[in-house]
Each structure stands twice: as C-alpha cells, then as structure tokens.
Write a protein that binds this DNA or RNA. Structure first.
Length: 487
RNA sequence: GGUCUCGUGGCCGAGCGGCUAGGCACCGGUCUGCAAAACCGUAUACUCCGGUUCGAAUCCGGACGAGACCUCCA
C-alpha cells in the first residue's frame, strides 16, 4: 500500500470530488456494468471498458487489493421505445434462427477477443446473469417482503411510490418523480403498473419467449436492473466501494439498482458511483440508432468507412486515455492521427531510455519529474495529465541522450522502471510489436547498404530511387547521425 | 417540454480564482546532398454581455450555441 497518497474520486452521488476511503482498509470492491451480449460491443462501449480498466489499474498501482466484478448480461427483459417488452437477446436469436445461448456465446467470444485486443485486464469475476437467476429471485422476494414490490399477473413490479415514503428515489439522477409524471401522459397504457415510475423486477413469460425461468410467481424473466443487484451483492456484499458504468446508465438503471438495494438490504450499494462519459462521432453520442457507430475491430482492421487507414489498438486506447473519463470525447481521423504521432513519440522515448548511458552523478531528481504522474492518478484518475507528465519525462530522456542532463546507473534504473510502470501497467499501453520478419530485415539491411554505397558515391539518383521505391512499398527510411533505419 | 452538463488557440484535449498543461498541425532552428525522420524553440485561446474580486477561462447572473438524460443504450 502506498502510504503517501490521497486518492480523490468524483462521486456522481454528491456531484463532488471526495476523498477515497475504502470500507475495508487497503481493499476495494468495484462493480462495473458490462455488456449485453446480443450484438458486438461498439467503440463507445469499449471506451467505457477501457476507462474502467484504467481505473482498475490505477487502484492496483496505488496498492489496493481490488476485487473487480464486471457482469455479462445474457438475459433480461427490456422495454423498448414503444413501451413493449423486448427481449433483445431473444429477438437476436429469432432473427438468426439460433438458440439464445448461441447468441450469447458468440458475442461473448468476440467480447473476450476485444478485451485482449484492447489490453483490458480480466476482471476478478465476470458473472453472467443467467447463472444467477436464483439470487435474483431471492432479492425480489426480499423486496416484496419489505413491502416495496407487488405481484401482478405473474409479474413483479417495484413500488416506487411506497419506496419514496422511506427512501429517496432520484438520489443519484436528481430526478423528481412528480415531474416525470406530468411528462409521461400516455403512460396509463401500462396496465399492470400501479404507478408509471414502477419498474419490472420479474416479467411473466410470453409464449414466444425462448429463454424462460421458473420462479415463485410462475415462469418468466428477470427485470433488467435486478441482475446487477443480485450479483454485486453476491460477490461484493450489500455495500461496497465503487460502482461504475456508462453515463447513460445513470437513469434508470443505476437509480433502480439503488432502489432495489435499499428496498432489499436497506442501503445504497456503493459508496462511490462513477460514470464514464460517452464517445462522440460527428458531435453525437455513438449509438446504433444514430447510425454513427463502428466496431472496435473495424478501426483496428481499417474496415470502417469513417477512417482511411487502420489504427493499432494501442493507439486507439492511448487516444481514449488522452481525454478524462468524465468528458465526452470526439473521435475524428485528425485527432486520431495526432494521437498516433504522440504515441510513437512516447514509445520511442521509452526505448531510448533503455539505451541511455549512465553518469557518475544525477543532475535532476527522478522522483520529482514523475511526482506529477502519481498526483494525476490520485486526482480522480486524470489520465490526460498523467500522459502530459510522461511527455515531460520524455523531454528529460532526450536531454540525457544529448548530454544536457545526467543520471546515475541507479537513477536510470529507477526512471526506467517508473516509466514502464506508468505506460504499461497503469495506462495499459503495450509497445507496438513490430513483426519480426527475419527475411525482410535481412533484405532491408542489404538495401540500406546499397543505398549507403550510392550515397557515398554521391549517386543521388540511385539513392533516391531506393528511398522512393521503399516509400511506395510503405517502408520509410530514416537517416540520422547514427545511421539509417527503417519502419 | 422537464432535468442536467458543456462551450478553451487550426484540431483533439487538460485546467476549477493569480503560476507555460500536453499531443498533433503551423512557423523558426539543429542535422542533412536534398528530403523525410529525429531533436530544440517561438507564437496563437479561453462563445458573448454584465457582476463579484486587487486579480476570472476558472465564481455568480443573463444571452446565444452544443450535447446528454427523461425510452433500449457504455
């Protein structure tokens, strides 16, 4: 445990930055809402997962023992814009003419692959909703017993009006239910609900449902919000430290989670609620309904029509971390290119660091240069500031290389370790792996030698022909004092 | 319509009352046969109008603009 830090976290519940004090010293329980596996997660989804992966890594860096739970939604009734119940997984299964579990399995495999591509650390536990139906039923039973839910025709609804007499519905989202009431006039069509704001805990099965579970109220499906309550409670307890998710889940999903937790166990599940902001494309939230979304694999493979070339996943990840998690981020080709250049500068600085020659004394304090980096982490996981401080460090690396600054062997080692930790462990950026193709590299050695010979003979026509020819093949020649290299 | 957030230099994006954020692009320099690359350096900003303050991008009020949520969404 790093003793000399004070982590501050922006708590959505209070709307303020607060000192982070875990419930159990040195331990952190964190729950993050994961993907619904009825389609492939898009880039916006990935931003949220990348942000919480970064937060997870920061907590580990600070020395906490973190239990990180991120669920997988593979069941659950949802309501669409027309007010009808739609089982998104079920309908995807019907469209594809396969069983729901096949849908879930297919996309789960893809999601796991994306986690590897984007270098997400695996959570401690990745529980699936379908494996916790019994736990969900038990929570619902508890809510009914406490008088905050009612059964209608094989379905169970959360009783928001009764709940409001004892608790604050809207504590997270700041919504006043009375205001909502006026706006939702057409709502009385919802026959079973007593009150428009009531939400389903359990939904009676429809004849066409492909996934159905038994319950004390008959066959049916769990409501959308209850799985998170059941699983967070099972793995982290009735009360834990951090609950995270995308900003768009704040209402109703997280608000209802709080209601369910209070309604069953009498407490808000999380001390700190954290919300990651959206990824924008063309100034709008990336969303299927806007048609401005692309897949995390498309940007890596260069198959998205939005971009003219592929970008390595590490560059995309780096780009995302150059914005704070609470800010919206606009993704454009121009911005991505800027990040790519910066990424390479950072990476080259890092590899130069390993080649530096030590001196007999140090001309600056390594700890001082990197204190900004740790301070940034502690200030609500400020990744952009962290990155800025690493670029400052890169300046020092070059200064050492040019003999303007010196470090002893010991300090150099310290510097290298710290930089590697920040870049690889905290930011989760792996140096881009160059394909080590021995044959190509042998050929290139020869080509470069030929060009060098031509240059020595001042045969510029030949040397430029080689250079231009290589450029056409996508290989860039870099001349420097130390010799010629390529990439 | 209601609730909320935001408006920073050519672009992305930090900042949360006084101190150069950072990256990219631009421009200048070093290097170079030329170029590229690399490195160094300079410049450019806080939507508008009021107010508070010795001092405001930063706080308050208003205008305009953008976005999110209110319905599935990371």
């Amino acid at each position: 445990m790093k003793s000399d830090h004070q982590l501050v976290i922006y708590n959505s519940l209070s709307g303020k930055k607060e000192k982070f004090v875990p419930l159990h010293e040195d331990h952190v329980g964190m729950y993050v809402c994961g993907p619904t596996l009825y389609s492939e997660p898009h880039m916006g989804n990935m931003r949220t997962f990348i942000n919480f992966d970064f937060i997870y890594r920061c907590l580990l860096y600070l020395g906490y023992k973190v239990k990180y739970v991120r669920n997988i939604t593979d069941a659950g009734h949802i309501t669409n814009s027309a007010g009808q119940e739609v089982d998104s997984i079920g309908s995807a299964a019907r469209t594809a003419q396969v069983q729901p579990l096949e849908i879930v399995y297919t996309y789960n495999v893809k999601f796991q692959e994306l986690q590897r591509i984007y270098n997400l650390m695996p959570p401690s536990i990745e529980p699936a909703a379908t494996a916790h139906i019994q736990e969900q039923i038990e929570v619902i039973e508890q809510i009914i017993e406490n008088g905050f839910a009612y059964v209608v025709n094989g379905s169970v609804y959360f009783d928001v009006k009764t709940y409001m007499q004892a608790h604050n519905y809207g504590i997270l989202s700041g919504r006043k239910v009375d205001e909502l009431e006026q706006e939702t006039r057409a709502l009385n069509a919802q026959e079973e609900k007593r009150f428009f704001a009531d939400f389903a805990l359990w939904k009676k099965a429809n004849p066409e449902d492909m996934q159905v579970w038994r319950s004390p109220w008959g066959n049916g499906n769990p409501g959308w919000h209850i799985e998170c309550t059941a699983m967070s409670t099972k793995y982290l307890g009735e009360r834990f430290d951090i609950h995270g998710g995308g900003l768009d889940l704040k209402f109703p999903h997280h608000e209802d989670e709080i209601a369910q937790n209070c309604g069953s166990f009498g407490c808000n599940p999380a001390q700190y609620w954290m919300h990651a902001n959206m990824l924008n494309v063309n100034g709008q939230k990336m969303s299927k309904s806007f048609g401005n979304y692309f897949l995390p694999k498309e940007i890596v493979e260069g198959t998205s029509t939005l971009f003219t070339k592929p970008y390595p996943s590490a560059v995309v990840r780096f780009f995302m971390l150059q914005a704070h998690y609470r800010s919206t981020l606009d993704i454009t080709e121009e911005a991505l290119n800027a990040s790519e250049k910066g990424f390479e500068r950072l990476m080259e600085g890092l590899s130069l660091l390993e080649k530096l020659t030590p001196s007999s004394s140090s001309s600056f304090e390594v700890a001082k240069v990197l204190s900004a980096a740790e301070a940034a982490i502690c200030d609500d996981f400020n990744a952009p500031i962290l990155i800025a401080s690493l670029f400052d460090a890169v300046k020092y690396i070059h200064a050492i290389n040019e003999g303007k600054e010196q470090l002893t062997q010991e300090d150099l080692l310290r510097f290298t370790q710290a930089m590697t930790t920040f870049v690889q462990d905290v930011l989760g950026i792996e140096p881009s792996k160059k394909e080590e193709n021995q044959r190509l590299s042998d050929v290139m050695d020869m080509v470069i030698t030929l060009r060098q010979q031509a240059r020595e003979k001042k045969d510029w026509t030949a040397s430029d022909m080689i250079r231009d020819g290589l450029a056409k093949a996508g290989i860039q020649i870099k001349d420097s004092k130390e010799g010629t290299s390529w990439s």
